[in-house]
Design a protein around this nucleic acid. Sequence first.
DNA 1: CCAGTACTTAGGTTG
DNA 2: TAAGTACTGG
Length: 764
Amino acid sequence: MGYLEELNDSQRVAVENIEGPTMVIAGAGSGKTRVLTYRIAHMMKLGIDPFNIMALTFTNKAAREMVERIGEIVGPGEARNITMGTFHSVFSRILRINSDRLGYPSNFTIYDTQDSKSLLKDIVKQFNLDDKAYKPGNVLGRISAAKNNLISPESYAMNEDIKLEDKMAKRPEMARIYKTYAARCFKAGAMDFDDLLYQTNVLLRDFPDVLSYYQQKFKYILVDEYQDTNHAQYLIVKKMAAVFENICVVGDDAQSIYSFRGANIKNILNFKRDYPDFKLYKLEQNYRSTKNIVEAANGVIAKNKDQIKKKVWTSNDNGDKISVIRTLTDNEEGKLVTNKIYDKSKSDGLMYSDFAILYRTNKQSRSFEESLRKLNIPYKIYGGLSFYQRKEIKDILSYFRLAANNKDEEALKRVINYPKRGIGKTSFQNIIIAAAQYGVSPWEVISNFAQYPVNINSGAKNRISAFATMIQSFSAQMDKMDGYALAQEIAKTSGILKELHTDKDKGPEEVERYANIEQLLSGIKEFTTSRADDESKALSEFMLDVALLTDADATEDEDRNHVTLMTIHSSKGLEFKHVYLVGLEENLFPSQMALNSRTDLEEERRLFYVAVTRAKETCTLTYSTSRFQWGNLITAEPSRFLDEIDEQFLKHESPPRAAGRSLSGRSFNRTTPTGGLNRQLNSRSLKPLKSVTSGSSTESTDTTFGADIHLKVGYNVEHDRFGKGKVTKIEGSGSDTKASIFFPRHGSKTMLLTFAKLKVLDND
DNA sequence: CCAGTACTTAGGTTG
DNA sequence: TAAGTACTGG
């Protein structure tokens, strides 16, 4: 068992003691994942059947990587039999198997946040309520909190405290909305994210045989990031572990940063109460960061009142002090950080993937994006709008959803008139009203007007019926046709491809939208071809988990050498050699909303702790004295967290001022004409930057960057999507330069050079 | 029914 | 500022 020798003493005992309730408190960078991985591998070495192990992780990616590493120790075939994944994905699978108990179809749709909000908006409108008081986000948050605390619509309506709260918040009709929302979801055969946990609880509560089955099946349960579980998750785990009590939770109370979505830090503190004879292991040696970083972070987190006592330490070198840099504007902050990354990568011969820019809020990414683009540095933004939430992807997925589950109301709403087929809002509204009257789903109305008369003119009626027939024909193919073939068929027949393929306005965004659809389709193809013979290749199978996938889960087989931009929240569990933590200003970090309560402020502090401890070698903190917010410049104060770091760990740098350091003098590292541009486009679609400089920027030039790919008529080029082609025309100038290119396989395209992913093959 | 335009209002983190 | 919505004229 050589793997045991790779562990330090405290890690090893945590790996070896596999029986009974166990809590592992793991400081930042203390090898938590390694312990979890080896513990499971060790269990299997001792003869425990992987089918009896359930491991709940924070991201699907973490689960995948862990299975892979366990596979290296015990053999990949066996490792695959572990039930491993996020709460949401593991329990959605369990719910599909047992859906009939709850009256849901096994292919129930998973509504994402967009779907939920859209439905709530409808309901608020239908009830004629004030949409200012009942904003979809707020209403959903309220329902979500209720579900996370296992409060049904009925008990919600009867709870006096809740009634009072809602009355105070000027939302007296909340109970009615919750009830209707739940009913509409149920009728649509849909669960929202919170339902996946809520309904699992219902399942385990109301069906003792089901509970007993899973209690016997999962003799060993492991939960990662336990500090971020909410009440619903806590109860599921507790029930399932009740018979064998072989439950191992791993976490760090100092890194609890998800209370806003119901995470309850008390779960970790109450473990002792639930399992009095539990074993506690602490991992306190940090292997990741320098002494300066570890100790600076310790000093800050010590200011929190509520925490489990531990002393994180490291035997690593002192390393560099933490840099603190002030800039005058957010744009300057962007340029400064980008320049530093450029310089350091060159002087130290580093990969761009050694660098991360972390921020509190997604919108801060903008100034860094702009600067990185200008320096041609490849980057990837994580979070924000994920691939699956893009409009064109959601549109086509809605067809797939609707074909798989006709009752899916939100999918129907999305595509009944997309592409345009003359079915307007009023018609659809009347359908919804009729559906409510008859007590059926909208789909039943539109597929059977004879039985459910609706007040719609006959022309629209015919068009709707034609639409319903089309969907039915897709549904009929669902189990017969190969998923990829059906997806293609739907994309074509629905008119989506044509819609995105029209000859007019083929701007870069249209081109990319089309490319995204193609990417989705090729993803489906990959899915069907990778499936074993005994596994279903149906499109519905592909759809099962799509709503649960996030950007962080995307496999990165392509170019990994990019700077990472992400929120601190998404950086949890990751590490980078060089971390730039930006926007350290009062009201931004800590967030303005966290200033009113001690618990909120402590969570911000934990967030700061998480951010700093991502860094292995250097950590740079920046703040700006002014910042653009909603179009006007606001002044900003440095964050209190800067003051909370002991001066001995800090070095204050002054920003390199304009003299001789402006970007314009620097050459863009144009090794290949398209080098960085490609990756930026792959990373994320970005609108053309109209004026790149704004505010106080001192920068003088923003030349025809990107457009100076030296193309001439007659060149042969290669495009990521369209393959090889020949340039037939060049028009416009500067960043508006357009080229017409003839692709033998796709016809002639006109594209903006600034955005086209072109590679020049030759110039004969 | 649709497309273009004027207007309003954003508080933050995610599966 | 920018995105999303409501309105209005065709």
